[in-house]
Design a protein around this nucleic acid. Sequence first.
DNA 1: CAAATTTTTGACCGATTGGACAAACGTTAG
DNA 2: CTAACGTTTGTCCAATCGGTCAAAAATTTG
Lengths: 211, 211
Amino acid sequence: MTTSTDAPRRTRIQQEKRELILEAALEVFSTNGFRGSTIDQIAEAAGMSKPNLLYYFRRKEDIHATLMQRLLDTWLAPLRELDDIGDPMTELRNYIRRKLEMARDFPRESRLFANEILQGAPRIMPLLAGDLKTLVDEKAAVIKSWMRAGKIARTDPWHLIFSIWATTQHYADFDVQVRAVLGPDRGGDGRFEDAARFLEQLFLDGLKPKN
Amino acid sequence: MTTSTDAPRRTRIQQEKRELILEAALEVFSTNGFRGSTIDQIAEAAGMSKPNLLYYFRRKEDIHATLMQRLLDTWLAPLRELDDIGDPMTELRNYIRRKLEMARDFPRESRLFANEILQGAPRIMPLLAGDLKTLVDEKAAVIKSWMRAGKIARTDPWHLIFSIWATTQHYADFDVQVRAVLGPDRGGDGRFEDAARFLEQLFLDGLKPKN
DNA sequence: CAAATTTTTGACCGATTGGACAAACGTTAG
DNA sequence: CTAACGTTTGTCCAATCGGTCAAAAATTTG
């Protein structure tokens, strides 16, 4: 074995073309959902004919599955980095910041994931109840230990994680609405910095006035 | 004119059947998205034949449009109720509570809306930049006045509203994920009460420890 | 170069889709 | 009863869908 990976052996051109297809599919799937997307659309976005695309991925589902599989890893990376050792408050602040940056830099990935969950997660349900739950439970335990140590206020760690997901991903998934509501002046590039400032304050101090 | 409404005149049976279709369409659209849903599915869910359904709604799009139009009204009702006069902190708390109740009681409506926004809001963009923006701007002004009066902490009112939307609707739109992560024991009916408690604390006091 | 292999494509297929239409059926008013 | 009107359905159609296949084109290998 020259290159020993679990993945089936592939030529250089296969690697490239598969990557091209996945990139195109991410674009199409994330804006139209799985059923709303056609192989023709993906093929055209990838600059090749439909039969050619089907030469690299036998079925439409295979493209989507490959995409989801990769996605989940990178998507959960920020949560994995949540460190037991660091200062709790800054750890959480960094996690929120990283999640918001991902919403800004990878909105298509966020929407792809949202589309899947919205429609009942028919294709990744096992992953949610398996790997995802395990990871969240683990990190919830870490957060709980912080609470016991008096480092952060006592609340439900699971719902805390949900709220971080919800508020940050909102800027990717509901981007159209956010921009429409903020209008042309405030809806520009600065909206993510505004969001970062707001979220930091919300999660640290809440809304109660200081005095 | 006996009944003078803007809507075209309709017989009693037409009213009923249209309502039946809209109810069925809400179910189907909210779980499959617009393009992922078929007229046959909706017709079957409504207990009638496809041509019969098309007698009441000429096109698939008309059903969806009618649904969206109604939805937006009821969906924004809680925000409309946000009252200038009441005590700011309790007004906000009540708003969050009402929104969370809507996520619990009308998850299909939430998902229908989320589906539409996720895919770029092609059919309701004008409403977002029009009525919705107007309403949010108006309420943001109210919130701002509360801040000036020192009743709540100073932050960005628009992003505050976004965060309330995000955290509450999360429990409808990402319900599958929430239940999967919480597991069989904690993912039951009690999850909304847990969420309510958590959100109240988050928005009031944030995470900083009391000590 | 020539054979073997990989990549690309045009043509095609069955299934499903949104929608049209005329005929049948039911209901109501005179 | 019957004519008019509202409702329902079976049948059909063109377009689009995911996917196949054989053959052509390009590339790699000896």
